[in-house]
C-alpha cells in the first residue's frame, strides 16, 4: 500500500526534491490522510457467523456466506496542520465517524495511508470504556489508564478532571446514577486532560448545557492555543462555525466541499433542503441554525 501512496505523491510532484518535501510533510503536519478508503464487510445472513452454520454448510457455496461490502469512506485526501480545528459535517451515514475511527487508528483503512503526529485522544461515542456499575472515580482512572497514562499521572490529574467537570460531589456515585450531561462532562474532561496532541471529538458536545458548552469551547481554545489539533464531527453547525478554522462536508464517503466553515455550512444547509435565512440578511446567522437543529442551542453563544 505504501507503493500506492508513493506513486500518488510523485504524480502530484514532478521534481524529486518535491517528493522530499512531501516526506517532510509527513512529520510536519498533524494529520495527513492520503486517498483513504474504508470498507466494511457485513455478512448478509447474521447466522452465517456461527460454527453450526459453517459445519452444516461445509464445502457448499452458500448464498448466505456472501458478504456485502459497504464503502464507508471512498478516497478521502486531507491535510491538517498543527494547531488547527477541523470540522466535519454531513448527513447521517456520510462516513464521518468511520473516518474519525480511521484517524484514531481503530479501523484499518482498506487502502491509502493515514499519518498522525502526536498523542491521539478520542472522544468518540459517549462513555468510552465507561462502566455504569463502577463509580465515577473508577471510571476516570480506567479511562485514563486505557489511554496509556501511568497510575501516577492519573493521580496527578484526577483533581483537575473532577474539578473541571464540576462533579466533586458525585465522583463516588456509580456512573449509572449520572445524568447524560454528567456523563458527557466527565468523558470530555478525561479526554481533554490527557494532554492530547490530536483530539478527535465525535458528537460529544450535544449533551451539555449552555454553561458546560461554553466551558468546553474554552477548553478546546486552550488546547488549540498550545498548538494542539482538534477534529470535531458535529451536527451542530453553530458549534462548527464558532470553533473551526476549516471545515469539510462529507457525503456518501466523499468530501464534497472543503473551505471556510461559514460557507461550507451554508452550502450544506442548502443541500439538506433548508432554506437560507431570508428574514434578517446575515445579521444573525446563529438563529437560522437554531431553526435547523434545536439540539444545537445557540444560547451558549449569547448567554455567557
Amino acid at each position: 500500500m505504501s507503493s500506492l501512496s508513493a506513486s500518488d505523491l510523485t504524480a502530484v510532484s514532478a521534481a524529486p526534491q518535491d517528493a522530499d518535501a512531501q516526506l517532510d510533510d509527513d512529520y510536519r503536519l498533524a494529520i495527513r490522510i492520503k486517498d483513504v478508503r474504508v470498507d466494511y464487510r457485513t455478512i448478509v445472513n447474521p447466522r452465517a457467523n456461527t460454527l453450526r452454520h459453517t459445519v452444516t454448510n461445509f464445502g457448499r457455496k452458500s448464498k448466505d456466506r456472501k458478504v456485502r461490502m459497504i464503502h464507508a469512506v471512498k478516497g478521502v485526501t486531507l491535510d491538517v496542520p498543527h494547531g488547527k480545528v477541523l470540522g466535519i459535517i454531513g448527513a447521517n451515514g456520510a462516513g464521518k465517524s468511520t473516518l474519525m475511527r480511521a484517524i484514531a487508528g481503530i479501523l484499518p483503512p482498506s487502502s491509502g495511508e493515514i499519518v498522525v503526529n502526536g498523542r491521539i485522544s478520542t472522544l468518540l461515542a459517549l462513555g468510552v470504556g465507561f462502566n455504569g456499575q463502577l463509580s465515577g472515580r473508577d471510571n476516570v482512572v480506567l479511562g485514563s489508564l486505557a489511554a496509556g497514562l501511568t497510575r501516577r499521572q492519573v493521580d496527578e490529574r484526577f483533581e483537575q478532571i473532577t474539578q473541571w467537570a464540576e462533579l466533586e460531589h458525585a465522583i463516588d456515585l456509580p456512573m449509572k446514577a449520572y445524568s447524560s450531561g454528567m456523563y458527557g462532562r466527565l468523558a470530555f474532561a478525561v479526554s481533554t486532560h490527557l494532554e492530547p496532541d490530536v483530539l478527535l471529538i465525535d458528537e460529544a458536545l450535544s449533551t451539555g448545557d449552555a454553561h458546560f458548552r461554553r466551558k468546553s469551547y474554552e477548553k478546546m481554545q486552550e488546547l488549540v492555543g498550545q498548538a494542539r489539533t482538534i477534529v470535531i464531527v458535529s451536527h451542530g453547525l453553530a458549534a462548527i462555525k464558532e470553533m473551526c478554522d476549516d471545515c469539510i462536508w462529507m457525503h456518501q464517503g466523499e468530501i464534497v466541499r472543503q473551505g471556510k466553515p461559514d460557507e461550507v455550512a451554508d452550502e450544506y444547509l442548502e443541500f439538506q433542503g433548508v432554506p437560507r435565512p431570508k428574514r434578517k440578511e446575515n445579521a444573525e446567522d446563529e438563529t437560522a441554525d437554531d431553526d435547523v437543529d434545536p439540539l444545537d442551542d445557540a444560547m451558549s453563544m449569547e448567554d455567557i
Binding site: D26, R28, G105, P109, S110, N117, R119
Partner: peptide, 16 residues
C-alpha cells in the same frame, strides 16, 4: 530533525 520534539508518529496503512 523534522519532528517537533518528542511527538509520537503514527502511520496507519491498509493491513487487516
Amino acid at each position: 530533525a523534522a519532528v517537533p520534539a518528542g511527538l509520537e508518529h503514527h502511520v496507519f496503512r491498509s493491513r487487516r
